[in-house]
Design a protein around this nucleic acid. Structure first.
Length: 312
DNA sequence: AAGAGCGGCAACCGCCGAAAT
DNA sequence: GATTTCGGCGGTTGCCGCTCT
């Protein structure tokens, strides 16, 4: 035996609130308060509404000091910074903005602020596909959760590292952040972020065995002076010997600005157009070494994405 | 002038942890 | 301890008004 039912669902009114209902609720709460019991409130107030509906109406519209109208630049900044830090925890964000409700902020973010930021930071954005799965043609909008430099460090909070790295947390010199694989979709998501922390993008790609290495161009160098690359040096987090254990590399590349600086790369090899394109590149280890050794992509903003199908 | 398309926003839905019985 | 609802939250829906053609 649990609690009594909250309300007679067949007998409650739904839809927009009338001015009379608003006045009735307002007068009642101002006189008697909520009593900590929203379910009992509508009956006491003489309203044919569900308690939940009354609560929502009061919190989002009727309670005193609710601020309506345009959001200020300061409010924009606070919302963006908090979103970068904690994500879509609207109630927490609302707590930092006196007079604003979580519903208001959520609506504002979804309808205006998000678009505003996309236009500001990715003016050429037209929807990007998963770099590793052309068939996964969902359009993935830029993730806006780290548009601000002051939250750059908050991104290194991954709970799950990519295989191929020794460390359990993402290395600091790798400009990425990855999240755990949602078991239902079996996809990784990862973020790219430029050196200034001003922009990131979120992509999804399917993984089979989580066999993937991500590194950026300036973390890769070649040891020989003649440009050939019998040995590739990676960041300290990627073991050279481990690289030799992979086969069937899938290499992709590009930069976080949405450019395709390495198009000659694909022209040469007829294999694709890079990470920000939608082709999948298949290389063996020797080809990967050659490609990297020729200097393609070994500049600051260029990223390599290397995955492998099977260990030898 | 009319209707199609779009954006904004209030309200609903469904989930989850806490609380009541 | 089990069962049921409450309270709160984030995601989504659908209505309404505005703009464009």
């Amino acid at each position: 035996m649990g609690r009594a039912p909250c309300c007679d669902k067949a007998n409650v009114k739904k839809g927009p609130w009338s001015p009379e209902e608003d006045a009735q609720l307002k007068v009642f709460i101002e006189e008697y308060g909520t009593g900590g019991n929203w379910i009992a409130l509508p009956q006491k107030a003489g309203l044919k509404r569900c308690g939940k509906s009354c609560r929502l109406r009061w919190l989002n519209y009727l309670r005193p000091n609710i601020k309506h109208g345009e959001f200020s630049d300061d409010e924009d900044r606070i919302i963006c910074n908090l979103y970068a830090t904690i994500g879509s925890r609207w109630s927490i964000i609302a707590a930092q903005l006196p007079g604003r409700t979580d519903n208001d902020i959520k609506n504002y973010w979804n309808t205006k602020l998000k678009k505003k930021l996309i236009n500001k930071f990715t003016p050429n954005y037209q929807g990007k596909t998963s770099p590793f799965s052309p068939t996964l043609s969902q359009s993935v909008p830029p993730n806006l959760s780290s548009l601000y430099k002051d939250h750059f460090n908050s991104f290194y909070t991954s709970t799950k590292s990519l295989s191929g790295f020794e460390s359990s947390s993402p290395p600091q010199n790798f400009l990425y952040y990855n999240t755990a694989i949602p078991s239902s979709t079996n996809q990784y998501s990862y973020y790219l972020q430029n050196q200034d922390g001003l922009m990131d993008s979120q992509y999804y790609y399917p993984v089979k065995d989580q066999n993937m290495i991500i590194f950026n161009g300036n973390e890769v160098s070649c040891s020989s002076s003649d440009g050939s690359c019998s040995q590739i040096s990676y960041s300290k987090d990627v073991k050279q010997e481990e690289m030799g254990c992979f086969q069937g590399f899938m290499l992709d590349y590009g930069n976080i600005n949405g450019d395709y600086p390495l198009n000659t790369f694909s022209d040469d090899h007829q294999k694709g157009s890079g990470i920000l394109g939608n082709s999948q590149l298949q290389y063996d280890l020797e080809e990967v070494k050659e490609l990297i050794s020729t200097g393609h992509g070994c500049s600051n903003n260029n990223m390599f994405f290397l995955s492998y199908e099977n260990r030898l």
